[in-house]
């Protein structure tokens, strides 16, 4: 599904991610954990070709990622990415329907009215799936944090995908919306057969839902099933010993 070999990515002149290798099988839910500034966002952005890499290889669905981030359109169609704190200009006039439609669109040279019937149906189904049918004609500037996350999830599932990459998808939600969102995500993962690579700060959630954990602090400190990778020793390697003592007290 996803293979990363000896990946090194620099930000300004310094290596933010160094010599990282791992692979992700179909149906796997993997979490990248690590302290702030550990290079987690840099890693996923390099995997997607948003940031250039200095060394290493990335294979997405078996296809190599080009030096300037090229991947065949077919492969791009099957990946969905939700960036950290999806910050956009709230003054942009765009409705929920239009935003979800952008996820459906193949994005080549196409007239805007091409396949409008299929697009309409796909948007309707995707929104219904995230309990957001009533949001269809809302401007995105009017959405609450939780509604926006659900709409972005609809953007991901409006077309069948195989790999979902989430950069702190839950940031900014309160506890209740967070657990609701997680239940929905797990349900969809089972239904759609998604493989998920996600960055998370919530170690308890990772323990409950993920089947693979990557501890990152510039280099990959350890990886494995949650019981192993989230054991105190492994956490100390990624976060430092202070953090582990803190977690044990609480």
């Amino acid at each position: 599904m996803l293979t990363v070999e000896n990946l090194t990515v620099h930000r300004d002149l310094y290596p933010a991610v160094q010599d990282v290798s791992f692979s992700l099988e179909a149906g796997m839910d993997a979490a990248i954990v690590g302290p702030n500034g550990a290079g987690k966002s840099t890693l996923v952005q390099a995997i997607l070709g948003i940031l250039p890499r200095q060394a290493g290889e990335v294979f997405v669905l078996g296809e190599p990622l080009g030096r300037s981030g090229q991947l065949p359109g077919q492969v791009r169609q099957q990946i969905a990415y939700l960036p950290q704190n999806f910050l956009f200009d709230r003054r942009i006039p765009i409705t929920v329907e239009e935003l979800v439609g952008l996820g459906w669109e193949p994005l080549g040279l196409r007239w805007p009215w091409t396949d409008s019937r299929q697009r309409f149906l796909a948007i309707q189904q995707a929104l219904a799936r995230v309990d957001g049918a009533y949001l269809r004609s809302y401007p995105i500037s009017a959405l609450s944090g939780g509604e926006l996350k659900r709409v972005l999830l609809a953007y991901c599932l409006v077309r069948p995908r195989r790999l979902l990459i989430l950069d702190e998808a839950l940031a900014g939600l309160d506890i209740r919306s967070e657990s609701e969102f997680y239940q929905l995500l797990c349900q969809l993962k089972r239904e759609q057969g998604w493989a998920i690579l996600q960055i998370s700060h919530d170690l308890d959630m990772v323990r409950r839902h993920c089947d693979r954990v990557l501890c990152l602090n510039r280099t990959l400190r350890c990886q494995g099933v949650p019981e192993v990778a989230l054991a105190p020793d492994s956490l100390a390697a990624a976060y430092g010993t202070e953090f582990v003592r803190y977690r044990h007290r609480h």
Partner: peptide
């Protein structure tokens, strides 16, 4: 539209 809305999202779509 996608470029105006969010450039990284557009790059991730190729």
């Amino acid at each position: 539209m996608l470029i105006s809305l969010h450039e990284p999202l557009a790059i991730a779509r190729g």
